[in-house]
Design a protein around this nucleic acid. Sequence first.
DNA 1: GCTGGCGCTCGGTAGACTCGAGTGCCAAAC
DNA 2: GTTTGGCACTCGAGTCTACCGAGCGCCAGC
Lengths: 358, 358
Amino acid sequence: MTKPHDSREAEDPSAGLGARRAAILEAVVAEYIGTAIPVGSSHVANAPGVHVSSATVRSDMAALEQEGYLVQPHTSAGRIPTDKGYRFFVDHLAEPGVLGTAQRLKVRRFFDQVHGEMEELLEHASGLLSELTSCAAVVMGPSHESAWFRSVQLVGLSPRLALLVVVLSDGAVEKRSIELAEDLSDELLAEVTTELARRLSGRPLSEVDQLIAPPAAKSPTFGVVFDAAARALGEIVRPGEVDQVFVGGPSRLADAFDAMETVRSVLSILEQQLVVVTLLRDVLDSGLSVAIGAEHGYQPLASCAVVVAPVVIDGRDGGAVGLLGPTRMNYPQALAAAHVVGEGLSERLRDPVGGRSR
Amino acid sequence: MTKPHDSREAEDPSAGLGARRAAILEAVVAEYIGTAIPVGSSHVANAPGVHVSSATVRSDMAALEQEGYLVQPHTSAGRIPTDKGYRFFVDHLAEPGVLGTAQRLKVRRFFDQVHGEMEELLEHASGLLSELTSCAAVVMGPSHESAWFRSVQLVGLSPRLALLVVVLSDGAVEKRSIELAEDLSDELLAEVTTELARRLSGRPLSEVDQLIAPPAAKSPTFGVVFDAAARALGEIVRPGEVDQVFVGGPSRLADAFDAMETVRSVLSILEQQLVVVTLLRDVLDSGLSVAIGAEHGYQPLASCAVVVAPVVIDGRDGGAVGLLGPTRMNYPQALAAAHVVGEGLSERLRDPVGGRSR
DNA sequence: GCTGGCGCTCGGTAGACTCGAGTGCCAAAC
DNA sequence: GTTTGGCACTCGAGTCTACCGAGCGCCAGC
C-alpha cells in the first residue's frame, strides 16, 4: 500500500512516510502556515509532488492523522499539522529557506551601518530579527565565562561611597557600589585599586575566589575597604548576574495568536529573562535549532515554537539568537533569518566592535 | 434647583456640577472602573451622596451626558465616563487613595531589601509598580545632565582596540570602544588617559565640548588616539543616549484591553523607549500627574491613561515613574502607588545606593 | 491503487424571536 | 419646581432554527 518503496525519491525527504504522503504533509504545513485555516484535501490535490485526486489525498490524510502528523479540529473540517507534523516538516521537508532580497538587503545594511557598543549591537539585532520574521526575537550576549580581568578600579563618589569598576577582556564593564561607614580618602582608594589590579589583571574570572581570598591587611581601614571591594567583586562575577538578553518586537506576538490569554502568558514569560535564557540554552544544548510546541518543557509556551541559532566567537560560545512565535511560524524563513543574524553577530563580535564603515 | 447652595459639601467636590451630579458622576466612574460594564441609573440610585430615585438619576445622567462627562455606547445602554468625566473625577472627586496594607507591606519590603546598582533598583521598581497596580509601569532614571566627570580611563582590549570608560559623579558608568588602524601601546593609552583625566576630572558634562576641543598633540599617534577618544566622549555625553528607561509588566496590558489591536499598538509604543521618555516628560512638564486619553498627544495611546510621579533628588530632577493602563484604570490607587514608589526612589537615590540592611 | 460519486457531519452565518436592562418622557405628588 | 413612579420604547445579547458549503469517509468501478 502507498508504494512502500517508491523509487522516485523515497530516500531522504519522505523518510519513511512515502513520497506522496510527505508531499501532502508538506503542502498542508505550507498552506496552514500561510493561512492559519485548516486545509482540506482539495486544496492539496494539485500541489507539487501530489497531483492525485482529492479522494486519494483524503485517504492519505487519514493515514497521516492516524500516525499523528495531522489533526482535525472537528470532524469534517480540514486538517492542521500537529507538533509532530511540524517536526517532520522542518526535519525532512522544508527547503533550506532563503531570505528575500529586500530582507537580505536589510541585514547587510544593518551590519554595515551598525556601530556602538555590544549592548546596542545586540539590542538592535533583536529588533532586526523581529522585523525580518514578524516574530518576537531574543538575542543573548556572550557569557563572560572565559573572560579575564582587564582593569579594576575603585572610584570615590562621595566620602563614604565608592564605585568598583571592572573592565573585562571582552569589553564588558561591570560596576558595583560600595558603601562604608568610614570616610574614604582618595589615597586609600588608590592603594586598594593598586592592590586589586596587581592581583587581578590578566587573570580569568573563574579564579576570582582565590585572587581575593587572603585579605592583605596593610592597615585596618585598608582591610575593610579591600574586603568590601572583594565582596562586590564576588557579586559581579557570580552567575547571579544573568547574561545579557534583549527581546525585540514582543508586540508582534499580539497578532500571532488569537487567544488573548495566550498572548498574555507568552509575554509574561518573555519578561522573565532568566527563563528565556534557560529556554534558549536548553534548546541549544539539546542540539536542536527548532523546538516545537511541547518539545521544550515549558508549559506556558506549548503553543509556541522556538528557533535558535548559536553565536560563535572564535569557536567558543558567544551567545545565541532566538525567535519565538506560534507553532505555525514560517520555519524556513525563521531559520534562515536566525542563521544569518547569528552568523553576522559571530563575525562582528569576532573582529570586534567598531564600524567597518560608518 | 438641585440645592444650589447645599451646605453639606457643595464647595469643592461639586465644582460647578452640583453636589448630586458630582456624586452621580463619581459613582458611575467608580463602578465602571470596577466592572467595565456601562452603568445604568438604578445602579447609581443609592450610591452614597445620591439617594434619589433612578428617574432622577436618569435626568441627571442625561444632563451629564449633555455636558460631555458621560456617553452611551448605544441608545438605551448604561453610561460610560468620557475622558472629561475621568478628568473631573481625578481632579475633584477621587479620594486621595490609599494602598492596601498588603501593598504597603510590599513596598516597604521592597525598599528594605533591594540592593545593588541603580539599574537594578529601577528595573525592580518598575516590576514592583506594575505588580501593585496591574498596569504596565515605566521607571525613568535620572538624567546625567548635571553630573560631572569623576573618572576617565582608556583600557586596551587588543592591539588595535581600546575602551573608553567614564565614571560620572552620580555613579553612572559609560563606555565606548575605540578602534584604530595603528597598534596601541599601553604607555600611549596611559598618556592619553592622564591627559583626559587632567582635563575632565571634576568638570561638568555640559562643558565636554570645550574640554576636548584643542588636541594637545604631543606626538602624531597621541593626537590620533586623543581625537578618537574625544569623539567617543562626545558620543557618550550626547543626548542621543536615551535616558535609562525600564518597563515593567507590559504583559498586563493584555488583559487591560479587549481589542487585540489596541494591545498590539500600545505594546509597540512601549518598545520605543524614546517615545516613552518623551511622553512621560511631556506629561510631567505640563504639570499634570495624570493624562487621560487624548490629553497627551499620542494617537495610539488614545485609549490609555498615563499616571506619572516625579523622582526628586535633592530638589533636582531625578527621573520619574509612570503607569500606563486603560482610561478606566483605578486612578486613586495608581496615583498612590506611583507616588509612594516615586518617593521611595527619591529617598533611596538621595542617600544613595547600598542596602540599609541586606 | 486511483478515481469519481454519494451521503453525512458540522461549523458558521443569517434571520426570527425573546428577554432584560436601560432610557426618555410625563403626569402626579410633595 | 423638584422628585417620583409609571409607561412605552430601544436595542444588545442570547437562543433557536434553518441553511449553506466545506470537508470527510466509504465504496464501487476502472
